[in-house]
Design a protein around this nucleic acid. Sequence first.
DNA 1: GGTCCGTCCTGTGGGC
DNA 2: TGCCCACAGGACGGAC
Length: 309
Amino acid sequence: MPELPEVEVVRRGLESWVAGRGVEGVRVHDTRSVRRHTGGAEDFSATLAGTSIVETVRRGKFLWMPLRGLPVSTALVAHLGMSGQLLVEEADAADEKHLKVVLELEASAGKPGQLRFIDQRIFGGMFLSPMVPTGDGGPGGLGSAQALMPVAAAHIARDVLDPVFDVELFHRCLRARRTNIKRAILDQNLVSGVGNIYADEALWEARMHYARPTDTMRRPDSIRLVEALRSIMARALEAGGTSFDKLYVNVNGASGYFSRSLNAYGRNGQPCRRCLTGGVASLIRRDPFMGRSSYTCPTCQRAPRNARW
DNA sequence: GGTCCGTCCTGTGGGC
DNA sequence: TGCCCACAGGACGGAC
C-alpha cells in the first residue's frame, strides 16, 4: 500500500509531469472518491476545470497541488488511503478497473495528457481545499517553501523526514499524553506519515514495546524512536524509487520491498532476526491492537510492568 | 480537550 | 466449484 515514502515518490514524479500545466477538464467516475469535497462532484469538476497546477507538495501522507486561477487560494488535495494511485497517462490508454477521477491536462510536448486517480478500496480521495497560513511556517518539508497549507491538512503534524521536524517538541507532546506509544505515533496530529507497518518496524528497531505509556518516555527514548522512524522511512524511500514506473506506484511492487526487509510486521511465528543473530531465536508474536495487529519480539521488546494496553 | 472506537470499502484467502 | 466470512488498513466523526 502507499506509505509515506511512496507518497513522496509520487510527489516527485508528479512534479515533473503536472507542475505548470492547466486543467482543461475533469471527469469523476465515482463520486465516493470526491466525498470529502464539500460542494459535491459537480462543483469539484466545475471549480477545478480552468485552473492550472502550480506545484506538488506533501506533508505526511497528504499530497496537494496549489492551483492558480481561482479567486481564493486553493489546492487540489489527494490522499491515497490504502490503495490509491496517481498515474499520468495518455488519453487513449484503457481505463483502469478502479479508475475514479480523470484530469485532462493542457497539452505539453512529450508529456501525457491525463492525470488519473485510481483507488480500489476508496479509502483515499481527492478534494479542493482553501489554503491558509499554518502558523508553523507552512509545509516546510519536502516540496515547497510556501507558508500556506490546505485547511484540510493544516492539523497534520510534520513527519520525521521533514528537515524542521522538532524532536524536542515531539518528546514534550509525548510526555503530555496519557496513552501508549504506538497509539501516539499513529496519531497524525503528533507525527505524520506513520502507519501500522512503520510503527511496528520502528518500535522493533528501537527495542520498544507498543504498550509503553507515553508519559514514561525519557528524552533518549524519544530520540531513539525518531531515529528508528527516520532510518526506516529513508530506506523505504530509497526502495520506493525502484518500484516507481512511469508515475505508477505498484501496490504489489511496494510489498516486494517490504517482504524482504520487514523485521516485525507480518512475521508472526517467525524467528526474530535480531535474537537469531544473538543465538536465541525468539518468535515474533502478533497481538490484536486497535482492531488491527501489532507484531513484536517478546525478547527484545518486553512489555513494561506499567504497560498501557 | 483528550482518548478511544466504529465506520467507510473491496479484494483475498481460508474454511466448509 | 461456489459460497460465506474474517481480515487488512488511514482518517474521521462521535461518544465518553
